[in-house]
Design a protein around this nucleic acid. Structure first.
Length: 800
RNA sequence: GGGCGGUUAGCUCAGUUGGGAGAGCGCUUCCCUUACAAGGAAGAAGUCGCAGGUUCGAGCCCUGCACCGCCCACCA
């Protein structure tokens, strides 16, 4: 063993070994209890980033822990086809090749996607291996596998037949680049600098005008009304009269609607139902027409403005108004605008015929499950968020006009009937027509993701996998997909499997950049996960991410990763001492000395604490516990105390040291699998890999405080230089660890006596306070008395 | 506008039901003697964001405010 632990070689070696030896495998075995972590499938075109790394560290920690505890664990790998995202990647490739999706046509394009994926897709699975994630890689599933597609079709037909999927012509978010609808959850909002124009709409009877404010003059030709608030005194008398829309010079009514804000702009709103959500709502409420003047490509289609961009059209219309004295003012205005999360095109609200999921129905069963807390979110604040978002979920637009995805299993006949079934029908279910064309829309990616916990196990067939591994145990993910994924998985599981997919949802933190802001390309503050892994290794990275994971947002920090590096090196060298000194010693739990009983009690205590933390998904504190028991207790005290006996060939010391080291390795393995397995391989008589070694039983903790007095006096000695009057075991340990003959005190005895007298005076004063003694809990008062006694003892020891 | 999280040492962060302010890094001093200098020991360093309140006692509980971040909603 070299004096310095190098993670590189060992990590790659163990990753290969574990997988090759089948130790990651999950096979159904009805005699064993399953434990399943539902891991979110990454985009098939993606590569590992820090968020994945944290997610895997959390999931793999739980999986490895449960595996050692004897559970039949399933950590399911796979990929999401990520509709728009993947189509976007491929379109960029095509553009580089000088062609386009439109030029290829749908079929050829899809062939290109598949060909590209065969060559470049799924690379992220190797990144997963590199972090040591013990997924059963044989089982990798893809949401576009034939079997998975069948599950998605079954799901769609099921919901359709229940009446929970319908078609409707509504305003939706439209991406003019991809020319598809998007759900609200696929947008990102950003503040942009814009101009707010105040424009006069002349009253039709020539008696004046009403001024409106707009940021989108290009949509003026689609105006069908002007709306004011019913309580607005300024305009009450105008309601019911007509105005003339600029440019088109059409007459439209002035209506009253309480959706209009009194204090914004002029208090009057131009109503353009086809191009704005609020206007759409107002229009439907008042039965207004919905003319459109923006095409699917985002360009203007209004008469006289055909083919212009919206900016160009706006300029023309504004000029037109200005010439006629209708442009009152134009001022700077900064506001939030929606963009496509994938291509960053400005979203165009647009009316179109889409497929919808009725969320009120869908939400009922998940809500009941969450409210009864038979599924729990951790931390609890996320539980409230999950419930809130189910209660307020608007209907879900599930159709997309892209090509890459699950094509909706609906067939249209020339008479406009729709036949919905899993496989192509021979004739229209309603009129018997055989001239059927398949619906060209595909489904929102998240529609298929909702089936992940059981479609990956063979559903809709009743497979042994499904029987063993459904329902699962826990879902670990970040909070940005609670609404997109978690809630929908819970619904689909309840609806199709008759059981919830897991008991607990663990929402781990979002990793922010070093500057405390979200990592993003445009800010240039991202952290390269591969660079971190190459520099520090998987164990240190895992430890660092887990250690720094307490709040909902956490800044990326190299400090905790470096801490992980120190921990693995420390462990390595502790092992080196024991291995070289104890060659051949078999482990035995028969402590013969006080320090041996003490370290075993401390390990028991630590194990209980760690188990308690992991049970509540508090990973950071479990790491802290393990770090300190390794450095402070195991290395600085225990090994220092027994070192001499190890060199002298003391059989009991050797056997217990080997035993204690193995124990420590087991406790650390779920978080830092590689270094612990590597050390384990140097220990004698290993019949099994550490990854599948049995999780230890915590034992007696009665001796956990056995060394406390020696430790306290060691500090006193170093501060004062006065050797404390110890005898027997205590003196032996003190001499071995503190080495008084070679230690020079850094403080002086008088100053230390002074400090202790101060502490004693403070404690005495506190205990003399009748109100404190009367009101404080008994254990608090007792603790104060114990402190007082300790200070007196210490003062006594250094000759007070 | 709403929800959530944060504000504690120079930095990154802990602080469990209210009871003498902690860790890691960094810094100062001491120790290279046969596991580890990526080590050991001691130390300096904090008005716990601000202002009130409750309490014998507040980093912790209550009220208000400020600032930072994440998410959601959109006042055209």
């Amino acid at each position: 063993m070299e004096p310095r632990y190098e993670p590189g070689g060992a990590e790659a070696r163990w990753q290969q070994t574990w997988e090759a030896e089948g130790l990651y495998n999950a096979d159904p075995d009805p005699s064993r209890t399953p434990y399943v972590d539902c891991h979110p499938p990454p985009n098939v075109t993606g590569r590992l980033h820090i968020g994945h790394a944290l997610n895997l560290s959390v999931g793999d920690l739980l999986i490895r822990w449960k595996r050692m505890q004897g559970f039949n664990v399933l950590f399911q790998p796979g990929f999401d086809h990520a509709g728009i995202s993947t189509q976007n990647v491929l379109e960029k490739v095509l553009i580089e090749e000088g062609t386009s999706r439109q030029e290829l046509g749908r079929e050829a394009f899809l062939e290109r996607v598949w060909a590209w994926l065969h060559e470049y897709g799924g690379k992220i699975i190797d990144d997963y291996r590199k972090i040591g994630a013990s997924l059963d890689y044989r089982r990798a599933r893809f949401t576009m596998d034939d079997a998975y597609v069948r599950a998605v079709m079954r799901f769609f037909v099921h919901l359709y037949n229940r009446g929970w999927i319908y078609r409707a012509n509504r305003i939706i978010n439209w991406c003019p680049y991809h020319e598809t609808s998007l759900s609200d959850l696929e947008l990102e909002h950003e503040d942009v600098d814009d101009a707010l124009s105040t424009i006069r709409y002349p009253l039709a009877d020539g008696s004046g005008h009403i001024a409106i404010a707009t940021v989108r003059p290009a949509t003026i030709p689609a105006d069908v009304a002007v709306a004011v608030h019913p309580d607005d005194e300024r305009y009450k008398h105008l309601v019911g009269r007509e105005v003339i829309v600029p440019w088109t010079e059409k007459r439209v009514p002035i209506i009253a609607d309480d959706r209009v804000e009194l204090d914004f702009g002029t208090g009057a709103l131009k109503v353009t139902p086809a191009h704005d959500q609020k206007d759409f709502d107002i229009g439907r409420a008042h039965g207004l027409d919905e003319p459109s003047v923006i095409g699917p490509d985002g360009r203007v289609t209004a008469e006289g403005l055909e083919g212009l961009t919206q900016d160009e059209a706006a300029q023309k219309i504004l000029d037109w108004c200005k010439e006629r004295g209708l442009l009152e003012k134009r001022e700077h205005y900064r506001h939030s605008v929606a963009f496509c999360a994938r291509c960053h095109s400005r979203i165009e609200p647009r009316i179109s015929l889409q497929w919808w999921c009725a969320m009120e129905e869908i939400s009922k069963r998940p809500l009941a499950e969450l409210r009864s807390e038979s599924i729990q979110y951790h931390p609890p604040s996320q539980h409230r968020f999950a419930v809130d978002s189910l209660e307020n979920a608007p209907d879900w637009c599930i159709s997309r006009q892209i090509w890459w995805g699950h094509q909706i299993p609906a067939w249209h006949c020339p008479d406009g009937h729709i036949t919905v079934q899993e496989d192509e029908p021979s004739a229209c279910a309603e009129c018997g027509s055989t001239e059927l064309t398949r619906e060209s829309d595909v489904l929102d990616t998240w529609f298929s993701s909702a089936l992940w916990p059981f479609a990956t196990l063979g559903w809709p067939d009743d497979t042994p996998d499904l029987q063993q591994f459904y329902p699962g145990s826990v879902s670990t993910t970040a909070r940005d997909i609670i609404r997109l994924w978690e809630n929908r998985m819970i619904f689909s599981g309840l609806e199709l499997m008759g059981d919830k997919p897991f008991d607990d949802v663990v929402i781990h933190p979002t990793v922010l950049a070093v500057d405390g802001r979200r990592m993003s390309k445009s800010l240039g503050n991202g952290i390269d996960a591969f660079e971190v892994l190459d520099r520090y290794g998987a164990d240190a990275t895992r430890y660092g991410l887990l250690k720094n994971s307490l709040t909902q947002d956490v800044r990326f920090s190299y400090a905790t990763i470096e801490e992980g590096g120190r921990l693995s090196n420390k462990l390595w060298n502790a092992a080196r001492l024991i291995v070289t000194a104890c060659e051949g010693a078999l482990p035995a739990n028969e402590p013969s000395s006080i320090e041996e009983r003490w370290i075993l009690a401390r390990l028991s205590q630590t194990q209980r604490a760690v188990e308690g933390y992991l049970d509540t998904f508090d990973f950071a504190h479990s790491m802290d516990e393990l770090y300190h028991v390794t450095f402070d207790d195991f290395c600085d005290w225990y090994l220092e105390a027994i070192k001499g006996r190890l060199y002298d060939g003391d059989a009991s010391a050797r056997a217990t040291a080997t035993f204690a080291l193995e124990w420590l390795l087991k406790l650390l393995h779920p978080a830092m699998p590689h270094v612990t397995e590597e050390i384990w391989s140097f220990l004698p008589a290993r019949e099994t890999r550490l990854i599948v070694a049995a999780w230890p039983e915590a034992g007696d903790t009665a001796d956990a405080d056995a060394l406390t007095r020696v430790q306290e006096l060691a500090v006193m000695f170093r501060r004062s230089g006065v050797v404390p009057p110890l005898e027997g075991d205590e003196k032996r340990i003190f001499d071995a660890v503190v080495k008084p003959e070679r230690t020079k005190a850094t403080g002086d005895a008088d100053a230390e006596r002074e400090r202790l007298r101060g502490e004693i005076a403070r404690a005495e004063k506190m205990l003399a306070n009748e109100r404190f003694v009367a009101n404080a809990p008994a254990d608090v008062v007792d603790a104060e008395r114990e402190k007082l006694e300790r200070y007196r003892r210490e003062l006594d020891a250094i000759g007070g």
